[in-house]
Design a protein around this nucleic acid. Sequence first.
DNA 1: CGGATCCCGGTTTTT
DNA 2: CCGGGATCCG
Length: 657
Amino acid sequence: MSRLPVFDPDGHTVNRSINYQQELNPAQYEAVTLTEGPVLVIAGAGSGKTRTLVYRLAYLVDQGVAPWNILLLTFTRKASQEMLHRASQLIDRPMHQVAGGTFHAVCHGWLRRYGHRLGYETSFTLLDRHDQADLVRMLRDRLPLKAGPGQFPRRETLVQIFGALINKNLDLDVLMEREYPQFVEQTQPVAELFQLYTSHKRAHQLLDYDDLLLEGRRLLAEHDDLRLELSQRYKYIMVDEYQDTNRLQADIVRLLAFTHDNVMAVGDDSQSIYSFRGANFRNIMDFPRLFPGTRIIKLEENYRSTQPILDLTNTIIAQASEKYTKCLFTQKKEGLRPVLLQTGSENEQSRVLCQTVTELHRQGVPWRQMAVLFRAAYHSFDLEIELLREQIPFMKFGGFKFMESAHIKDLLAYLRVAANPRDSISWNRLLQLVPGIGKKSAQKFLAQLNQNDFSLESALRWLTSQKSAKIRTATEPLAELLDQLQNPDLSPASRLNLALAYYEPILKTHFDDYPKRFRDLEHLLTITARYRALGDFLNDLTLEPPTSLADVTEASHDYLTLSTVHSAKGLEWEAVLIIWLAEGRFPSVYSQEREEELEEERRLFYVAATRARRYLYLLFPTVSYNRYLGTTLNTVSRFLRDLPGGLLEAFKVEPEW
DNA sequence: CGGATCCCGGTTTTT
DNA sequence: CCGGGATCCG
């Protein structure tokens, strides 16, 4: 059919002739055009879920809905940007006024703007997991912990407990008994520490990830006028990956939609893989109860994979103990069976993988159409060495600890204090880098700062009035730096440069791998260059930390993807290779105790395998070498054991070189 | 305060 | 067996 461009009053070229009915299947079409009232779309893997959301965005705008009246909640910022981009191409009209992003980012935006109603200044600081652990350590040292019975949890564990408390909406007693029985005797001090943790964050304008959701919800729940205003602004709400939301997020949607109920939730219970973050796959089944009158639409036709791949993935998920009937089918009947490759050592697995991708590449599959997936980031270490040796271009996603390394944290501490002088965690950090100042002095400094209402002047005074001349030679340059960083006219990049000049000698004395770390800091500088406001830079770093070296170094255009399964969610490739399909690795040893955790591992494997369009390779080494256990034998992952015959092509292989 | 020494644990997944 | 964290001691 012909598509005549027409001009709307704004002067944009508008294509008003998308034939929605023709370009979508009946179920998709219904999901796209049913704009009023609650809709739940159960979208199987590869069933055109993103396509449906994109067309719905376009359709809404085509129908005359203003883009700023739409809210698109996604799992990552990248996902929402991608959808908006595709939708704007479809209707040839910019969509950037659509509000989009993660729950955390959207709540964050509200809190910057309206947070004063809950007692937050606009300069509040976001804490990542590492900051949370630092704070817990600081507070735990203040607590008179007598050496009671049983161990006190490590600080990472404490952070985990606090997170579960919020996201799973449980009482501490119940949580401890159910999930941390080994620490049950410590429930009382843990509760005390949690109290301390919560009140400290308040007093110092600090918010962790959970606070964003918690306080975002409170903003809506306790301020009727604001709830009304936001509900009327976001007249149409779409939530992607609903199976990975938790109770808190469901509450936020419920509150936000109270004037209209125009919510479309999209998800797949079989792909719920974030229970460690408080998500529960049953949540998606609760949606109709939260929104009475929900129309449920199922997308079951798969457009991604070939039938032999679907035969395997359908079988895998059919073995799940709790499942909602859904059976994917495809028109792509032809195709190769998934291949199981059993190798000797881990290194042989790596070499066989190199051979396989090289062969696929020779047959015409570009690198960017291939991905290697694994359960945990460290599973690919050996492979990365092998890929480098073979000069196969690759990029790794997930498990990237750039932001957690000490030198990055150190450098950012100077900027964070400049942005929020109440940020006790950063003060604590940067003070202890001064030779001659340790825990005790830092503590004294903070107490003193507290009395002076955290004025920077009093901080500088303290730094320049140290009695010992030796200490003053170190604190005076620090005071000078902090004074310079205060200048509001400086760009984030120039501030970072100032801090780097001050920090470089410290870096040299603290780390023997100083050159490598210095390069990291220079990478950080290139990220900074994109920002005009210091606050934006710091927030983004916490809300969307760099996920791969790609964000830091030059991106090449054609590369093989290496990714954790979690980071591969929502993506697809011509060829997918999954490594380490051995008991203890995938499923992980940490999940072998509880049935529900094993079920999640199964869904995780399902997610991994359904990323493949044409080629699916499953690899596992029989022998693994462990430094302290010596050589051990692996058995193939339980997900591949006891499959009905004919689903897989199985080989024992040895590398040729 | 900070370096030396001892002791325990042992790479999950991420906003 | 190696590394981080807690603890001890100068």
